[in-house]
Measured scan of single mutants.
Amino acid sequence: LRLEVKLGQGCFGEVWMGTWNGTTRVAIKTLKPGTMSPEAFLQEAQVMKKLRHEKLVQLYAVVSEEPIYIVTEYMSKGSLLDFLKGETGKYLRLPQLVDMAAQIASGMAYVERMNYVHRDLRAANILVGENLVCKVADFGLARLIEDNEYTARQGAKFPIKWTAPEAALYGRFTIKSDVWSFGILLTELTTKGRVPYPGMVNREVLDQVERGYRMPCPPECPESLHDLMCQCWRKEPEERPTFEYLQAFL
């Protein structure tokens, strides 16, 4: 395994491009020591290896001592969030954005069929390849993070704006909380990567959403798509659509 080009840095580690087995181009995620327990990670990795779908980033291998390494397929255009905010983002029109959403829903419909939960679905965790191919990455890892700023769910590192209220408040993460996050991801797509709930801080978002506030229809977004977002944001988790439905609708 060779680490060649550093692609990015996040709160919990770095991402590199490299070569595996001398020939395969891969992405390598390294986790800061202390982010998660190697034992817990190894268990999760076994499950992650079983998830194989064309719209999920394929896991190739893991190094399960500290520092933990995760070796996955390489996606040339990086994260969907950076892609939307970058040069190419300007030229993306609604049909392409909807197609990308459908690809993500397709990957998540598979996660749904496998009775698995992602827990951290957002544009930053979707990767883009050639020809606007989108794949879901980092599934299941969020559960293992041991950082206090994260586990408190009120901490600075927790993605509260993407998280369903029952998950943020009571830790009830299910495929239905993933559906909520998918609704937020749809706003990221239609606004080219704007942060959700602009002008609001995490605490406010939690309070307002509890009181029934939902983001309005983004500019140039059809009402039918906003309606779909609002279905994803129904207060009762069981009233939210399935990913199978979302995939078919898109």
Score class of each variant (00 low, 15 high):
4 E>N: 14
5 V>M: 15
6 K>I: 15
7 L>E: 09
8 G>K: 02
9 Q>M: 09
9 Q>Y: 07
10 G>F: 01
14 E>G: 03
14 E>P: 01
15 V>Q: 03
18 G>E: 01
19 T>M: 12
20 W>K: 15
21 N>C: 13
22 G>I: 09
25 R>C: 11
26 V>F: 09
27 A>F: 01
27 A>R: 03
33 P>C: 07
35 T>Q: 15
38 P>S: 15
39 E>H: 13
39 E>F: 12
43 Q>W: 05
43 Q>S: 06
45 A>H: 02
47 V>E: 00
48 M>P: 03
48 M>G: 05
52 R>A: 14
54 E>H: 13
55 K>M: 10
56 L>Y: 01
56 L>Q: 03
58 Q>T: 15
58 Q>M: 10
60 Y>P: 02
63 V>L: 07
66 E>A: 14
70 I>M: 03
76 S>I: 13
76 S>T: 09
80 L>I: 14
80 L>F: 10
82 D>G: 09
84 L>T: 07
84 L>D: 01
86 G>F: 12
93 R>S: 07
94 L>R: 08
94 L>Y: 05
94 L>P: 06
97 L>E: 06
99 D>W: 14
101 A>D: 02
106 S>N: 14
107 G>T: 03
109 A>D: 15
110 Y>P: 01
114 M>V: 05
116 Y>R: 03
120 D>S: 00
122 R>Q: 00
123 A>P: 02
124 A>S: 07
125 N>S: 00
125 N>Q: 03
125 N>I: 02
125 N>G: 00
128 V>S: 04
133 V>R: 14
136 V>C: 04
137 A>D: 03
137 A>K: 01
139 F>T: 00
142 A>S: 05
143 R>Y: 02
143 R>F: 03
145 I>V: 10
150 Y>W: 02
154 Q>S: 08
157 K>F: 14
161 K>W: 00
162 W>K: 00
162 W>L: 01
162 W>N: 03
163 T>A: 02
164 A>G: 13
166 E>L: 02
172 R>I: 10
172 R>K: 08
179 V>G: 09
180 W>H: 06
180 W>L: 01
180 W>P: 02
181 S>H: 01
182 F>Q: 02
186 L>P: 01
189 L>N: 03
195 V>C: 13
195 V>I: 12
196 P>H: 00
202 N>C: 04
206 L>D: 01
209 V>M: 08
209 V>L: 08
210 E>G: 06
210 E>D: 08
212 G>Q: 05
213 Y>M: 09
214 R>N: 10
216 P>M: 09
216 P>R: 11
217 C>M: 08
230 C>W: 10
233 W>Q: 09
234 R>V: 08
234 R>F: 10
235 K>C: 15
236 E>M: 14
236 E>N: 13
237 P>A: 10
239 E>Q: 13
239 E>T: 12
239 E>I: 12
240 R>Y: 00
241 P>K: 08
243 F>Q: 05
244 E>S: 12
245 Y>M: 12
246 L>P: 02
249 F>R: 06
250 L>G: 08
